[in-house]
Measured scan of single mutants.
Amino acid sequence: QEELVKAFKALLKEEKFSSQGEIVAALQEQGFDNINQSKVSRMLTKFGAVRTRNAKMEMVYCLPAELGV
């Protein structure tokens, strides 16, 4: 569980995922086979993730800066 949270936060820091499906796929690539869209959705809510525009003006998920991840 701890490893999943770390990987999840690291992915969001990249600010390149525009959908929950993309986050699920990226986590599965890292070996988290039991991850699915509903789990990702709950984690996004739990950590207060928001959708914002990145440098390329794409809408992407990211974590609020005050979490200091």
Rank of each mutant, 00 (worst) to 15 (best):
Q1P: 10
E2V: 11
E2G: 11
E2A: 12
E3Y: 10
V5F: 15
V5M: 13
K6Y: 10
K6R: 14
K6A: 14
K6P: 04
A7R: 06
F8E: 00
F8P: 00
K9Y: 14
L12Q: 00
K13R: 15
E14R: 07
E15H: 08
K16N: 05
S18I: 08
S18M: 09
S19M: 06
Q20G: 07
Q20C: 06
Q20W: 06
G21P: 09
G21D: 12
G21E: 15
G21T: 12
E22S: 10
I23D: 00
I23L: 13
V24R: 05
V24H: 04
V24S: 05
A26S: 06
L27A: 00
E29T: 09
E29V: 09
Q30S: 07
Q30Y: 07
G31Q: 03
G31K: 03
G31N: 03
G31L: 02
F32P: 01
D33V: 14
I35A: 06
N36V: 05
N36R: 06
V40Q: 00
V40R: 00
S41W: 09
R42E: 15
M43R: 00
L44Q: 01
L44Y: 01
L44R: 01
K46S: 11
F47C: 03
F47Q: 04
G48S: 05
A49D: 02
A49V: 07
V50K: 11
V50G: 07
R51T: 06
R53L: 15
N54Q: 02
N54T: 05
A55D: 12
A55N: 10
K56H: 10
K56C: 03
K56L: 09
M57G: 15
E58I: 09
M59N: 05
M59G: 03
M59T: 06
V60E: 02
Y61D: 01
Y61G: 01
C62P: 01
C62F: 06
P64F: 04
P64G: 05
A65Q: 12
E66Y: 08
E66C: 15
L67V: 14
L67I: 14
G68W: 04
G68C: 06
G68R: 05
V69M: 09
V69D: 15
V69N: 15
V69P: 15
V69W: 03
